[in-house]
Design a protein around this nucleic acid. Structure first.
Length: 268
DNA sequence: ATGGTAGCTGGGCTA
């Protein structure tokens, strides 16, 4: 056993266009100083990602972009050894919704991190909802394969899933929405049943811990939010979890993303 | 009352 342990923080943030959020993202990184950051909804091509802005802040960048929509990235202060770009299981699916990195952390250890942007799926039912359910089936299969490594695994991102009634301001009004429909929540729960844990619930299950507020109808001002951004941890990561935080500050800034960051602190 | 906002794109789609 090592005498001293390193604490690292892993964050996730759906930025809703990295070009629009480049300055806010840099400002937040300077404040919060996360070691690893999963970003979603870049809405730009891989080659258009403002890599140098983040490299100047000390981050290595793994990016999977796409024209106009989707797009995911992982920023890491530690070396990125290998990446998986795109969610395995369907070579015909060209959505940039998944990137994974094996990262060497201090002490000669490794963690594996995925940045996830699950399909929204509305309206439901529709082909888009079917795509969402099929995407979760693929995520489940891939998660099962990753768990076999028995290493600290962090699956962080915008899952577009409201797990519990407490995770939405008005659950009765959301029963037919693709984010809260039973089939979608069951698909998410099947992944949890593989043995990964929702880090927010592992720390504190009171609810009212939203990560998203719609731009419309003054949702932020009225705190009409959703908890749809999640950090899922393998058993090897869960036992190292020391703290979780939903940082609401960036949602209050000018020209905000509609999502705000979630951070997990791990003792490695 | 089928709105209301944001982003990408250059009209309509996605969220």
């Amino acid at each position: 056993m090592p005498l001293s342990r390193a604490m690292i923080t892993v964050a996730t943030w759906n930025v809703n266009s990295i070009k629009q959020r480049e300055a806010a993202c840099a400002a937040w990184l300077k404040q919060a100083k996360p070691d690893v950051v999963c970003l979603q909804e870049l809405k730009c091509l891989t080659q258009a990602f403002p890599r140098s802005t983040f490299e100047d802040l000390g981050y290595n960048c793994a990016v999977l972009g796409q024209k106009s929509f989707n797009g995911v990235a992982i920023l890491s202060k530690f070396p990125i050894d290998e990446t998986v770009e795109g969610l395995p299981g369907d070579s015909a699916d060209d959505h940039a919704r998944y990137i994974e990195a094996a990262i060497s952390v201090p002490g000669g250890k490794a963690i594996r991190v995925a940045s996830i942007y699950a399909p929204n799926g509305n309206p439901a039912p529709s082909p888009k909802f079917e795509y969402k359910l099929a995407w979760f089936d693929r995520l489940k299969a891939h998660t099962k394969a990753l768990l076999a490594y028995e290493e600290p695994l962090i699956l962080a991102g915008d899952y577009n899933i409201i797990p519990r009634p407490n995770d939405v301001f008005n659950p009765a009004g959301w029963t037919e929405d693709a984010l809260f429909r039973l089939e979608a929540r069951q698909a998410f729960r099947r992944i949890l049943h593989l043995g990964v844990s929702d880090a927010v619930l592992a720390c504190d299950s009171r609810g009212e811990q939203y990560t998203f507020w719609d731009y419309q109808a003054g949702a932020w001002q009225k705190n009409l939010g959703l908890r749809i951004d999640h950090i899922l941890l393998s058993p090897q990561a869960l036992r190292r979890l020391s703290n979780i935080q939903i940082d609401r500050r960036p949602r209050s800034w000018d020209k905000p993303s509609d999502h705000t960051p979630v951070l997990a602190a791990l003792n490695l």
